[in-house]
Amino acid sequence: MIAMLILLAIIVAVILAIVGIYNSLVRLRNQVDNSWSQIDVQLKRRHDLIPNLIETAKGYMQHERGTFEAITQARSQAMGAKGVAESGKAEGILGAALGKFMLTVEAYPDLKANQNFLALQEELSSTENKIAFARQSYNDQVLFLNNKTQMFPSNVIAGMFNFTKRDFFELENPEEKNVPQVKF
């Protein structure tokens, strides 16, 4: 009788543990999805701002066609990117192109005095900051989820209910990658 009770208690405890782990996995997954949608909103906003920015700047910067083309191309690639890893790569390239563009703007004082351009620039740099801050919290949450899906005992339950590892959102800077190699 007592053995039966102990067995029952153990079974109940195991079921409760499984339910707890499952619920925490669901919570983490939802948090990751929610953080990602935060980033996604800002990325869309960035894509929407770029055509306006280029339109405003074009009149002042006739000799910078190459810069504009690089941005437009990077933008369309970023908009077509699927998945977190790919989108991170494309957004990194776009960010670098925009950074280069902002440097060239310094040479055009008339453009820098344009109210419309200044407003767009403020929106763009704010969007960029928001992406950076949202990325931080997204990556933190992905780390939590990935740890849970890989560590025992939660990995067993994660495997049973098909919880998979998520990708970090890393903005790749193409210039940082092409660091010239020094050989002796």
């Binding site: 403020e122 704010s126 900051n129 928001k130 801050f133 931080q136 919290s137």
Partner: peptide, 14 residues
């Protein structure tokens, strides 16, 4: 003041 709003929004995200 758009900048103030943007900055507050950035910090609320952070």
């Amino acid at each position: 003041h758009p900048q103030l709003f943007n900055v507050v929004e950035e910090m609320s995200i952070a």
